[in-house]
Design a protein around this nucleic acid. Structure first.
Length: 909
RNA sequence: GGUCGCUUAGCUCAGUUGGUAGAGCACGUGCUUUACACGCAUGGGGUCGGGGGUUCGAGUCCCUCAGCGACCACCA
C-alpha cells in the first residue's frame, strides 16, 4: 500500500467503492499510530475534546455532524504541523442510562432495579456501558475520525471520578455546595429531582377551573381559579393583591375550604395580579414555587398532598392514594355535585415535563444538594463578554450571557444509582457531615467510625463539566494536562450550550484558573427531509451506519458540512448524500485518468518553463486561489463554503476544463510539452487531494497512496510524527503538509486569457446545441478578434478551441469588413464568432434571437452608463470599482455594436 | 411577555468587509466522446416575504409589518 508501489490505473474500478478502502485505511492509520498526539516541547499543540456521547445508545446523525466538524478541523491543524490531539470518550449519562437499563430489564422480564439492589444494578449497568461504548467507538471508526484512542476517556473512569470528587470537595469547602430544603422539580416517574434546565415546557390545552371558597362566617364566598384542582388539598391560604379594592375588606378573614373543610386565611400578597382570573389565588406552598415563596413570607403550613410517585398522600383525606390526575377528575366532579364549581374555562398553559421521560414534573419540597451559582457565573460571563472565549456564530453570545446573568442555583443531587455518588459522609454518632475525596474511615469531627455515605448520585453534567481537563489527568499535574490544556476549540450543538458549554466554562475557570478553550463553535441540529426533529417516537431517525453503508463515509461527511450555515439546522436529504457520493466518484475517476497517463512519466525529469502552456499556468493559479479561499474559510469555521470551493475547483475547473484541455498533449507521445502536462496533472491532483483530505479522508488517502512518490511533498513523514517517537512511519496523506498558497503560482494574466478562451469555446458549443448541428459534427468556425489582445489570445488557444469546440476548420482573423452571411453568431467582448450553418439558419428566428440579446445587452450597458454618469458614484465609489464598471460598459458597448451590425446584415437578406 | 433565527429558481439551500444573483436536485434538448451515465454538453427558470429608510449603489446595513421556527421567562 505504500506510495512506492504503483497500481496500474487500468486495474482500478471505474467506480469508487468506499467499502474497499474505508476499514482497511482506518486500520492502517491505527497501525501507524498517526493520531496519537505527540508532546513536542516548544511547539504549540492543537486540542479538541469530543462532546462525549451518552452510553445510552448509538450515535445518530447529529453525532456524525459533530464529529465530522471536529475531525475536519483536527485533520487540518495536524496537516499544518501542530501536535494535534482529538480526545475521544463517552459519558455515563446517569439518569438517561439508568432509565434505559431499567427498561431493558423490564422488557427482558428480568428483576427490577430494586430487586437487584444497588450493587447488582450497577453491575448490570456497567455491562450495558461496555456494550454501547463498544458500539459507539465502532461507529466513530466508521466515521473516520482521527481521535487518539490511547487517550480514550469515560466519565466514570477512576481518574475522572477522582476529578469529580475533587471538584465537589473544593466547592463544598468553599461553601459553594450546600444542602437546601426547597421547591425542586421532581419527576414522579423517574423518582428523582431535576435541575431547572432538565425541565422542558410544553404548551398544553387545559382548563381554568373556578371554585367557590365560602367565608367561614357565612357572609359569602370568594371565587378562586386554578389549573391544578388536585393541589387544592394542600391549600393553606387564599391570596389577594393588597391593593385590590374588591377584597381588601376580606383580608384576614377565614375561609372554609370546600374540599377539605379546613379553615384557611385570606392573605394579601403583592405577587397576586388583580387582572388575572378572579384576582384570588389559592396558595399551595408544597406544590408550587410561587406559593412556596408566599408560604415562606406568611409562615403558612406546607402540607404535602402529592407524593413522590404522583399519588395523593394520606393528607388528601378521601382522595388519598389516588393518582394526581384521577384526583383532579374526582375533585371537579365533587365540586360540581356539591355546588362549589363555578365554571370551567378553556385555558392554554405551559406544563413542565421531564426532559428524559416527558412525564409532567411535580414541583415539590425536598432536601437536595445545590451549587451556589452567583460566584461561579460572574467570571464565566466575563470570559465571554471580554472575548477571552469567542462563540461562533456570534449571536449565541447573547444567549449565553443572558443565561449566565440570570442563573439559578444548580440542583446537583439525583435520586439515582448510576453515577458519581455524592462524596458526603454522615456520622451516626455526632450527626455531623463532611465531604471527602477519599472514602473516609473515621469522622473528622468526633473520630467515630460509624459513617454512612449520602445515597444520592450527582447530576451527570457535574462530571462532564470537567471534561476538557479531567480527560487530560486533572486533578493530577500530568504532562498531558500541562501541554494540551487549555483546549483550543469546542465544537458542539447549540442545544447543550447551557447543559454543558456554560458549565465547562465556569468549572474550568474555578478549578484551573483558565478558560477551558478559546473558541466555541456551535452547530445546528439535523432534521429530517421535512424539517422535523429526528426522534424515536416519530421513527424518522436515520442511522449514520446505514448511510455509510450505502454511500460511503466521505459522502456522508461531505454532505453534512456542505450547503449549510454555521449554527443553522440542517435538513437531511438522501439526494444530498448522493450528490456527495457522486463527487467522490468524480474525483476517483479524474484520478484514475491522471494515473493512467502517468504510467510512463518520469517524475525525476524537469522541464523548461516554456513547456508549461497557458492551461498549466491557469490551473495552478486556480488551485492556488482555491487554497487561499479554503484557508480563510476554515479559519472562520465556514466549513460549507470551504467545501464548496474545493468541489467547484475539482469538478468545474480541474475535470471539466483542465483534463479535457490536456488530453491532446497526453495522447501525442511526440508532444514536447507532454512531460510538463503530466507533471502539472500529478502535482495539482496531489495538492487537491491534500486540500480535500480533512473533509473526505478515505477517498483522498486511497488515491494518494497510488500516486507516484515524487509528486508528493518531500516531507511526507512530518517532524511531529517523528518526534512522537513513531518508529514505523508509514506514508499517509493525513500527515502531509496542508497546501499553502504559492506566490509563484499566482497568475492573473493566465486567468484572464483562459477566461476568454473558455467563453469562446462555450459560445461555439452553444451554437452547436442551438442549431442542432449534432454533437459530433465537425464544424467550421470563424473567430474575429475585435481587439489586438484578443487575437493573440485566440491564436495562443487555437488548439484548445479546435479540440473542445470540435471544429473542422478554424479561422482566426482580425475583424473583417465583410462578415459571413449564413452563419450563426455569438458576440463576446472582443470576439465575434461565426459558424456557417448554410440552410440550417432560420433568418427570422436568428433576427429574433439576436434582437433579444441586443436588448439585454443594451439594458446592461445603459445601467452601467447611468452609473458612470452619476456624479455621486464617480465621487464616492472606490477607484477600482469605477474602473471595472468602465471596462464592463465598454465591453457591452462593443458587443452591442457587433450585434447590431450583424442584425443590420441579416435584415438585408 | 422577552430574545434570536428563517423567509432567495419547482424543491433543499449557499451568498461575512454593500458594487449588475449562485449550487445541488428536479425540468427541456442533444450525446454508447477510450476518467467518470454516480457521466458530458447545452438550455429554461428568481420584482432575493411586504413596506419604508440610509447610501452614488442594498439580497447584503437600519426601521417596520407579516408568516414560520427556536430558545428564555412566566401565567393562579
Amino acid at each position: 500500500m505504500s506510495g512506492e508501489q504503483m497500481t496500474p490505473a487500468t486495474e482500478l474500478a471505474s467506480r469508487y467503492d468506499p467499502k474497499q478502502v474505508e476499514d482497511e485505511f482506518y486500520q492502517y492509520w491505527m497501525d501507524a499510530k498517526l493520531y496519537q498526539a505527540p508532546i513536542v516541547e516548544g511547539k504549540q499543540p492543537f486540542t479538541i475534546v469530543i462532546p462525549p456521547p451518552n452510553v445510552t445508545g448509538t450515535l445518530h446523525l447529529g453525532h456524525a455532524l459533530n464529529n465530522t466538524m471536529i475531525d475536519i478541523l483536527i485533520r487540518w491543524k495536524r496537516m499544518q504541523g501542530y501536535p494535534t490531539l482529538y480526545v475521544p470518550g463517552t459519558d455515563h449519562a446517569g439518569l438517561a442510562t439508568q432509565i434505559r437499563v431499567e427498561e431493558d430489564l423490564r422488557k427482558s422480564g428480568g428483576p427490577t432495579r430494586h430487586e437487584l439492589g444497588r450493587e447488582g444494578f450497577l453491575a448490570k449497568t456497567w455491562e450495558w456501558k461496555e456494550k454501547y461504548q463498544g458500539t459507539i467507538n465502532g461507529q466513530l471508526r466508521k466515521l473516520g475520525v482521527s481521535v487518539d484512542w490511547s487517550r480514550e476517556a469515560f466519565t466514570m473512569d477512576a481518574n475522572l471520578s477522582k476529578a469529580v470528587r475533587s471538584f465537589f470537595v473544593q466547592l463544598y469547602n468553599k461553601g459553594l455546595i450546600y444542602q437546601g430544603t426547597r421547591i425542586t422539580h421532581w419527576c414522579p416517574k423517574d423518582q428523582t429531582a431535576l435541575s431547572d434546565i432538565e425541565v422542558e415546557y410544553e404548551e398544553k390545552d387545559s382548563n381554568l377551573w373556578h371554585f367557590r371558597y365560602p367565608l367561614e362566617d357565612g357572609t359569602g364566598y370568594i371565587e378562586v381559579a386554578t389549573t391544578r384542582p388536585e393541589t387544592m388539598l394542600g391549600d393553606t391560604a387564599v391570596a389577594v393583591n393588597p391593593e385590590d379594592a374588591r377584597y381588601t375588606h376580606l383580608v384576614g378573614k377565614m375561609l372554609r375550604h370546600p374540599a377539605t373543610g379546613k379553615l384557611i386565611p385570606i392573605i394579601a400578597d403583592g405577587y397576586v395580579e388583580k387582572e388575572f382570573g378572579t384576582g384570588c389565588v389559592k396558595v399551595t406552598p408544597f406544590h408550587d414555587p410561587n406559593d412556596f415563596e408566599m408560604g415562606m413570607r406568611h409562615h403558612l403550613e406546607m402540607p404535602q398532598v402529592i407524593g413522590l410517585k404522583g399519588e395523593i398522600t394520606e393528607l388528601g383525606g378521601k382522595y388519598a392514594g389516588m393518582d394526581r390526575y384521577e384526583c383532579r377528575k374526582r375533585i371537579v366532579a365533587d365540586a360540581e355535585a356539591e355546588g362549589w364549581l363555578v365554571k370551567i374555562e378553556p385555558h392554554k398553559h405551559s406544563v413542565g415535563t421531564c426532559a428524559r421521560c416527558s412525564t409532567v414534573v411535580e414541583p415539590l419540597i425536598s432536601k437536595q444538594w445545590y451549587v451556589k451559582m452567583a460566584p461561579l457565573a460572574a467570571p464565566a460571563a466575563k470570559a465571554v463578554e471580554s472575548g477571552e472565549i469567542k462563540i461562533v456564530p456570534e449571536r449565541f453570545t447573547k444567549v449565553y450571557l443572558h443565561w449566565m446573568d440570570n442563573i439559578q442555583d444548580w440542583c446537583i443531587s439525583r435520586q439515582i444509582w448510576w453515577g458519581h455518588r455524592i462524596p458526603v459522609w454522615y456520622c451516626d454518632d455526632c450527626g455531623k457531615q463532611h465531604a471527602a475525596e477519599v472514602d473516609p474511615t473515621t469522622c473528622p469531627h468526633c473520630g467515630s467510625t460509624k459513617l454512612h455515605q449520602d445515597e444520592d448520585a450527582l447530576d451527570t453534567w457535574f462530571s462532564s463539566a470537567l471534561w476538557p481537563f479531567s480527560t487530560l489527568g486533572w486533578p493530577d499535574k500530568t504532562k498531558d494536562l500541562d501541554y494540551f490544556y487549555p483546549n483550543d476549540v469546542l465544537i458542539t450543538g447549540y442545544d447543550i450550550l447551557f447543559f454543558w458549554v456554560a458549565r465547562m466554562i465556569f468549572s474550568g475557570i474555578e478549578l484551573t484558573e483558565k478558560t477551558p478553550f478559546h473558541t466555541v463553535v456551535l452547530h445546528g441540529l439535523i432534521r429530517d427531509s421535512q424539517g422535523r426533529k429526528m426522534s424515536k417516537s416519530l421513527g424518522n431517525g436515520i442511522d449514520p451506519l446505514d448511510v455509510i453503508d450505502k454511500y460511503g463515509t466521505d459522502a456522508l461527511r461531505f454532505m453534512l458540512v456542505t450547503g449549510s450555515t454555521p449554527g443553522n439546522d440542517i435538513r437531511f436529504q438522501m439526494d444530498k448524500v448522493e450528490a456527495a457520493r457522486n463527487f467522490a466518484n468524480k474525483l476517483w475517476n479524474a484520478s484514475r485518468f491522471v494515473l493512467m497517463n502517468l504510467e510512463d512519466w518520469d517524475p525525476a525529469d524537469a522541464y523548461p518553463e516554456g513547456d508549461y502552456n497557458l492551461t498549466d499556468r491557469w490551473i495552478r493559479h486556480r488551485f492556488n486561489e482555491t487554497v487561499k479561499a479554503v484557508d480563510r474559510l476554515l479559519g472562520e469555521y465556514q466549513y460549507g463554503e470551504a467545501a464548496r470551493a474545493i468541489y467547484d475547483f475539482i469538478w468545474s475547473e480541474f475535470c471539466d476544463w483542465y483534463i479535457e484541455l490536456v488530453k491532446p498533449r497526453l495522447y501525442n507521445k511526440e508532444d514536447a510539452s507532454r512531460g510538463a502536462a503530466q507533471e502539472t496533472l500529478a502535482i495539482v491532483l496531489e495538492g487537491t487531494l491534500r486540500l480535500l483530505h480533512p473533509f473526505m479522508p478515505f477517498v483522498t488517502e486511497a488515491i494518494w497512496q497510488k500516486l507516484p512518490a515524487q509528486s508528493k511533498p518531500v516531507e511526507i513523514a512530518p517532524e511531529i510524527a517523528k518526534q512522537a517517537g513513531l518508529t514505523e512511519l508509514q506514508p499517509s496523506i493525513a500527515v502531509t503538509p496542508y497546501p499553502e498558497a504559492l506566490g509563484a503560482w499566482e497568475d492573473n494574466e493566465a486567468a484572464n486569457r483562459m477566461g476568454l478562451l473558455v467563453d469562446s469555446i462555450k459560445a461555439l458549443r452553444s451554437i452547436r446545441a442551438e442549431f442542432r448541428l449534432g454533437e459530433h459534427a465537425k464544424i467550421e468556425a470563424i473567430l474575429m478578434a475585435t481587439t489586438p489582445d484578443s487575437q493573440a489570445i485566440l491564436e495562443e488557444g487555437r488548439s484548445f478551441i479546435e479540440t473542445l469546440g470540435k471544429t473542422a476548420s478554424l479561422t482566426i482573423q482580425a475583424a473583417a469588413e465583410v462578415k459571413p452571411e449564413n452563419a450563426a453568431t455569438a458576440v463576446l467582448a472582443g470576439i465575434e464568432i461565426y459558424v456557417p450553418v448554410g440552410g440550417l439558419i432560420d433568418i427570422p428566428k436568428e433576427i429574433e434571437r439576436l434582437t433579444k440579446e441586443a436588448n439585454a445587452t443594451e439594458a446592461d450597458m445603459t445601467k452601467l452608463k447611468n452609473k458612470l454618469g452619476n456624479e455621486g458614484f464617480l465621487a464616492k465609489a472606490k477607484p477600482e470599482v469605477i474602473e471595472k464598471t468602465r471596462e464592463e460598459a465598454t465591453a457591452f458597448e462593443e458587443k452591442l455594436t457587433s450585434i447590431n451590425a450583424r442584425l443590420a446584415m441579416l435584415r438585408k437578406l
